[in-house]
Design a protein around this nucleic acid. Structure first.
Length: 475
RNA sequence: GGUCCCAUCGUCUAAUGGUUAGGACACCACCCUUUCACGGUGGUAAUAUGGGUUCGAAUCCCGUUGGGAUCACCA
């Protein structure tokens, strides 16, 4: 049978990292088996619907290259793929389930249901409507009385199912509550829509967060009552912010689009989250989506939660940045160049930046000295390893200024040769000339490139101007 | 609280009864070097805890502790 998985987000806003990872696993499970990956929008809660949220979902999936085979925008043989458009389907199946004995009509108000349970004594809501005769219930429904369809847990003893990650799960039927399947507004709850849609759409592997492990027996009961076969379950542990808290947008944690805005590459993000809770069994860590499709398997999925480590993501992003060709890097960097004065060779700047940054967002901090020389302290001229201090700098900078003023060939190599021979004639170390020049040009301790690279970037005029400023400060 | 689940370096993880408990990030040191990086080499660092089973346990079993999930007309 062809493997079919689905990503079924509800359009409530941002694409969370945990969500994206679930989608990735769903995608990989399908693609590793040559199967289909579908997209279904679960918008049965009208109160939570956020305008534009579906576009974020589409865009994110497209950006990372997780293309779906069926979905709201491209259709398919099992549509519609938006739950709000499937309302009649759920109603039909809900009534059918009542007839089959797997559910019953309930006329209690929300408040009555709330009052009916006692949390301290762990007493669940006992629905009086459950004992109504079928005829009476039907009559009240037909009379137009508001109702919900509530699941009937009609079994006793232990329910068992197998999870691909957690193994065999056993839960007593008594623990299961008789949840609402069809709301009074006619929309289904997740508990029902999910089962109906997954069955109707031929989903073979249900992949979702492990918060569903204990409610899965309820869904299985629905499958059973309909006489359907239930899918394979792949419950995955959550992605955590720290040991106690899940990663969530509500806590201000970064979403996918936040990370992209900070200068993380989509392919690096995907690579990183693939490894949060899954490993290939080898020591390889860098994987393209294509490679993941080849080697992904559910049996290497982990059972315990994984803490999202942005430091490691940053490192991995740096790996991706360095693996780019200079042209590719430049193209990616371009949107992050803000406040760079005209006349600066951006391609040269990109070449200098590529090995030095781990996220494109670091560009701003690396290049801020270009537009304006910061007001730096003379202490910067002191560097033990380079054997320089303000006194050395005053001498070498004065001589360097003369050399640079007369310099014809303003290329990196020529400049380096000139300054190197200056150091020789002065009888000082290379660094004693070059280090002060670099400080004079940047006013910063760390810069994207050495003295001559910065000089090339600035050109002769600006280089001399900045050295003059330094000499003035030093005098 | 009931039920379910989880537990290896700070973090992500490998080791499915026999390893000096391996790798990666981070950190530290050294090398390279016109800064800072990149790169290279090396180092610090873990089986939560108590009992079993076994010739032998990170691995199997039980208890303890710690953590998470769930108990919505949200998904």
């Amino acid at each position: 049978m062809k493997v079919r998985t689905r990503f079924a987000p509800s359009p409530t806003g941002y694409m969370h990292i945990g969500n994206l990872r679930t989608a990735l696993y769903e995608y990989l499970i399908a693609k590793a088996a040559g199967g289909d990956f579908l997209l279904r929008i679960e918008d049965t809660d009208q109160k939570r619907y956020v305008e534009g949220a579906t576009d974020i979902i589409y865009n994110t999936l497209k950006t990372v290259g997780m293309n779906w085979d069926e979905g709201p925008d491209i259709g398919g043989n099992y549509g519609p793929y938006v739950q709000s458009e499937r309302k009649p389907v759920y109603a039909e199946y809900a009534h059918k389930l009542v007839e089959l004995g797997g559910a019953h009509y309930c006329f209690c108000s929300k408040e009555e249901a709330e009052d009916g349970k006692e949390e301290e004594n762990n007493i669940k809501f006992q629905d009086p409507c459950k004992f109504l005769s079928k005829e009476e219930a039907k009559a009240r429904v037909d009379a137009g009385e508001p109702f919900v369809v509530r699941q009937t847990i009609h079994k006793k003893g232990k329910s068992k199912y197998h999870d691909e990650v957690y193994g065999d799960i056993e839960i007593d039927y008594d623990e299961l509550d008789e949840g609402v399947l069809l709301k009074s507004d006619g929309f289904p709850t997740y508990n029902f829509a999910n089962v109906v849609d997954d069955h109707l759409m031929g989903i073979t592997h249900v992949v979702r967060g492990n918060e569903y492990v204990s409610s899965t027996p309820k869904y299985n009961l629905i499958y059973e009552d309909f006489g359907w076969e239930h899918p394979l379950y792949v419950h995955v542990p959550p992605v955590m912010k720290d040991a106690q808290h899940k990663l969530s947008k509500r806590n201000g944690d970064a979403s996918f689009q936040d990370l992209v805005a900070k200068g993380y590459l989509p392919e690096a993000i995907i690579n990183y989250i693939a490894l949060l809770g899954w490993n290939p069994g080898t020591e390889q860590e860098i994987f393209s989506l294509e490679e993941l499709k080849q080697i992904f398997s559910v049996d290497r999925l982990n059972r315990s939660p994984a803490i999202f480590d942005s430091v490691k993501l940053t490192w991995m992003n740096g790996c991706y940045l360095r693996a780019l060709t200079p042209e590719q890097f430049h193209a990616r960097a371009l949107p992050f160049y803000k406040d760079i004065p005209a006349g600066i060779d951006l391609e040269a700047l990109s070449r200098a930046l590529q090995p030095r940054i781990e996220t494109l967002g670091q560009i701003a901090g690396q290049t801020d000295f270009i537009k304006q020389l910061p007001d730096y302290s003379l202490e910067l001229f002191t560097n033990k390893k380079m054997k320089t201090d303000s006194a050395v700098a005053r001498q070498t900078l004065a001589e360097a200024r003369k050399v640079l003023a007369g310099q014809q060939n303003w290329s990196n190599e020529a400049l380096f040769e000139s300054l190197k021979s200056l150091a020789e004639t002065m009888g000082v170390k290379n660094g004693q000339v070059l280090y002060p020049v670099r400080i004079a040009l940047s006013g910063k301790e760390t810069t994207p490139g050495g003295a001559t690279e910065l000089a090339v970037l600035f050109g002769q005029e600006e280089t001399l101007r900045r050295i003059d400023i330094a000499l003035q400060k030093l005098s």
